[in-house]
Simulated scan of single mutants.
Amino acid sequence: MIAELLPDAVASAWRLDDTEPVTLFPEEAAVVARAIAGRQREFATVRLCARLALRRLGLPGTPLTPGLRGEPRWPHGVAGSMTHCPGYRAAALARTTDVLSLGIDAEPAAPLPEGVLEGVSLPRERRHLRALAERAPGVPWDRLLFSAKESVFKTWYPLTRTDLVFEEASLDFEPDPDTAGAAPDTAGAAPDDTRAHTGTFTARLLVPGPVIGHTRRDHFTGRWLVREGLVLTAIVLPR
């Protein structure tokens, strides 16, 4: 599903579970040697996705160990992002001749736990989400905001090597016209997990942005998708 949010220059792969056998490189296996079994499985599956994406770029598989902030350390000449949540693992990669940086994120399509939204959003964003909920009540807007901010950080970090906290980017969402008016499920009816909600978002950086080609970038734009119990977001900065 993540491919629906990405341009042709980006190769991607995804899995819904961890049933496929994966042989890790020794360097990778050492990273999760002490982790619980579930963490080991998701770690391996998302790296399987990354290897499949590398193959689609015509590149060989290579150990993908985490850096200082947990970010994957990609081969030279590759920009990429990985994500995993219950029921979904994915990787998206591109050659740096085509893409400067990218970020993807997946989350379950369920409301955030109580109190979390206030910790990851600005007052203006919360007002924005309330207005959006009236237009498209079938979207878990708080979870979408969280996911989009994760994609913002994943795009930001390779360009700056500095942290970006939730309050340092202000997001606006726009549902696609053909999905914005979708009605909520009626009381007592089973949720329609096949109904798709899609749209775009803009993240305005509230701190000095990365300098790209002698120009300081003050915002990122991305796309989002809510379907089959998942929230997916993606940002791609073309070269």
Rank of each mutant, 00 (worst) to 15 (best):
I2K: 02
A3W: 04
P7T: 05
D8P: 05
A9N: 03
A11G: 00
S12H: 04
S12I: 03
R15F: 15
L16Y: 02
L16T: 03
L16K: 06
D17Y: 00
D18G: 11
D18Q: 12
P21N: 12
P21W: 04
V22M: 06
V22L: 11
V22D: 00
F25R: 03
A30E: 15
A30R: 14
V31G: 14
V31N: 14
V32E: 08
A33I: 06
G38Q: 12
G38R: 13
F43P: 09
A44T: 02
A44Y: 04
R47G: 02
R47A: 06
L48M: 07
C49L: 07
C49W: 08
L52E: 15
R55D: 12
L57E: 00
G58Y: 03
L59A: 07
P60Y: 03
G61L: 02
G61M: 01
G61P: 09
L64C: 00
T65G: 05
T65P: 08
G67N: 03
L68K: 14
G70F: 08
E71K: 14
E71M: 14
E71P: 10
P72K: 13
R73H: 12
W74Q: 06
V78F: 00
A79N: 00
S81R: 06
M82W: 10
T83S: 15
H84W: 09
H84C: 05
C85Y: 08
P86S: 15
R89Q: 15
A90S: 10
A92L: 08
L93H: 02
T96H: 06
T96P: 00
T97W: 07
D98H: 07
D98W: 01
L100I: 08
L100K: 05
S101A: 03
L102G: 05
D105R: 04
P108N: 01
P111V: 14
E114W: 07
G115V: 12
G115Q: 02
V116S: 05
E118H: 07
E118G: 13
L122R: 12
L122Q: 11
P123S: 13
R124V: 15
E125I: 01
R127V: 10
L129G: 00
A131T: 15
A133Y: 08
G138K: 01
V139N: 05
R143Y: 02
S147E: 02
A148F: 13
K149S: 07
F153L: 10
K154I: 06
T155I: 07
T155D: 02
W156P: 01
P158E: 10
R161E: 12
D163K: 09
L164Q: 09
L164E: 02
L164M: 05
F166C: 11
F166P: 09
E167F: 07
D172N: 14
F173T: 05
P175K: 07
P177F: 00
P177C: 03
A183E: 15
A187V: 13
P191T: 04
D193S: 06
R195E: 09
H197I: 10
H197F: 14
H197E: 15
H197G: 07
T198S: 11
T198Q: 13
T200P: 15
T202A: 15
R204L: 14
L206Q: 15
V207Q: 13
V207R: 11
P210D: 10
P210N: 09
V211H: 12
V211R: 15
I212V: 14
T215F: 14
F220A: 01
G222D: 01
R223P: 13
R223H: 08
W224K: 04
L225C: 10
E228W: 07
L230M: 04
L230G: 05
V231E: 03
L232W: 12
I235M: 12
P238E: 02
